[in-house]
Design a protein around this nucleic acid. Structure first.
Length: 284
DNA sequence: ATCCTATCCTGTAGGC
DNA sequence: TGCCTACAGGATAGGA
């Protein structure tokens, strides 16, 4: 579900809401997420104050006083929920239920359980196995065409799969990969190593533009994603190709195609993004 | 090393 | 209505 813009939206929501709040008690569902959440987590969180909310790619960091960080990933269906006035009973799939001193609550909800909750020493965060493999965050450090070109040098995988590879650039997921490729006019099937330098300039530019526009609209609500306050993101209104298979391209009117790459759907306009091995078509 | 496939889960939409 | 299948915003271990 959540890609960089959705996670950044949640990060900002949490920063506005739980910063400075102190954990009074925490309960776990006991169910396994991406990995087992240690049973010791509740007592380690107890009495800690939320000191900062940070993000890298799709990972969220809840920094606590005393040098601990709660590392979180939303997987496909994870959500953070905040309640000023919490219900007495949790709905199904609530895996962490934290109460603050002021009786407000923060819940982690995740039906598919691909999410991650892990407690890490803040000073060792960058060495955490999940994080040390991540590439640069495109909001913290906007990529340049020459940087991407260099990272893609020699890569034989399709450029769509390249954009999804969190080790090369962290935060792009399946929706925004298709959108970025469309706006840059690049055929998703081209091998990353064969994409010319000018196209990487366009991809770098559109990566920054698409992600920032999506953040401004609080992300894309495709099905389950909601902000911390249960509001849908509105970037879905702006989607040019994602989930629009068979519909007309908003730019040229041609039919949007759906293909499968690496067992994930890719949507693109063959006319606007054609030209395998040929020069980029310039917008007239 | 690099790339690809299968897998972990539940919920939902669509065909019959 | 129910049953069945396909698919869904992600990451990763393991094999080729």
């Amino acid at each position: 579900m959540p890609e960089l813009p959705e996670v950044e939206t949640i990060r900002g929501n949490l920063e506005a809401t739980i910063l400075g709040r102190r954990f009074a008690s925490v309960r776990l569902s006991g169910l396994k997420l991406r990995e087992r959440v240690p049973a010791t987590l509740p007592r380690r969180l107890k009495s800690r104050t939320v000191a900062a909310l940070r993000r890298h790619g799709k990972y969220l960091f809840l920094d606590l006083d005393g040098g601990l960080t709660l590392l979180s990933h939303l997987g496909m269906s994870g959500r953070w929920l905040f309640f000023d006035d919490p219900p007495a009973r949790a709905m199904e799939h609530v895996h962490l239920r934290a109460r603050f001193d002021d009786e407000t609550e923060l819940w982690f909800h995740d039906p598919r359980r691909f999410g991650l909750l892990r407690l890490v020493e803040t000073s060792k965060l960058s060495r955490d196995p999940a994080l040390r493999v991540l590439g640069p965050d495109p909001i913290a450090t906007p990529p340049t065409g020459s940087q991407l070109h260099a990272v893609a040098c020699g890569a034989r995988l399709p450029v769509k799969s390249f954009l999804l590879d969190q080790r090369r650039i962290a935060g792009i997921g399946n929706i925004y990969a298709s959108e970025i490729l469309h706006r840059a006019g690049v055929d998703p099937r081209r091998r990353a190593g064969a994409v010319p330098r000018e196209a990487w300039d366009a991809l770098a530019r559109e990566t920054t533009a698409v992600l920032n526009e999506a953040i401004a609209r609080m992300g894309t609500t495709f099905s389950m994603y909601r902000t911390l306050w249960n509001e849908p993101g509105t970037y879905g209104d702006q989607l040019l190709v994602y989930d629009r298979g068979g519909e007309p391209c908003r730019r040229c009117g041609g039919a949007i195609r759906r293909i499968v790459q690496g067992q994930r759907s890719t949507f693109f306009c063959p006319r606007c993004q054609g030209g395998r091995g040929k020069r980029m078509e310039r917008a007239s």
